[in-house]
């Protein structure tokens, strides 16, 4: 990530140098998850910070690899999940909540903005 990377449109409203808006990130992650689940998305519960990736959404670890790619494309490489969850066992990874991901994105973008 370099300072010349464009700030994604959804994040620009808080200012390029400021932290991203967690609510906007939450909405975007919800869209990404719906994209991954495709036809299963219709029966999804409303996605909130408390929604669990495994138990509530039935995402599998390979789905999280896909989500990691979407996050990196949208928010920059620092947002990819490989390092974020490295060291967690499979149960811990699948027990993550959407809120955990939002916090990760906000922290990653805040870190970039502060550089």
């Amino acid at each position: 990530m370099t300072s010349t990377d464009p700030v994604p449109a959804g994040l620009a409203r808080t200012g390029a140098a400021g932290p991203p808006d967690p609510d906007a990130v939450l909405a975007e992650i919800g869209s990404m998850i719906a994209l991954i689940l495709e036809e299963y998305a219709a029966g999804l519960p409303e996605i909130t910070r408390e929604t669990r990736l495994g138990e509530d959404l039935e995402l599998e670890s390979i789905d999280l690899v896909t989500l990691s790619g979407h996050l990196a494309e949208r928010y920059g490489e620092r947002a990819n999940l490989a390092q974020f969850v490295a060291g967690l066992d499979p149960d811990a990874i699948i027990a993550l909540t959407v809120g955990d991901l939002v916090d990760h994105i906000v922290a990653a973008r805040t870190s970039v903005a502060g550089e």
Partner: peptide, 25 residues
């Protein structure tokens, strides 16, 4: 199993130690 078993375990550490990593399903 899928490539996720490496994506979330060994691959980040290998990349951090200067290895080019390739995973595939």
């Amino acid at each position: 199993d899928t490539l996720a078993s490496f994506y979330f375990t060994l691959a980040p550490a290998f990349a951090a130690h200067g290895r080019a990593t390739v995973m595939y399903d």
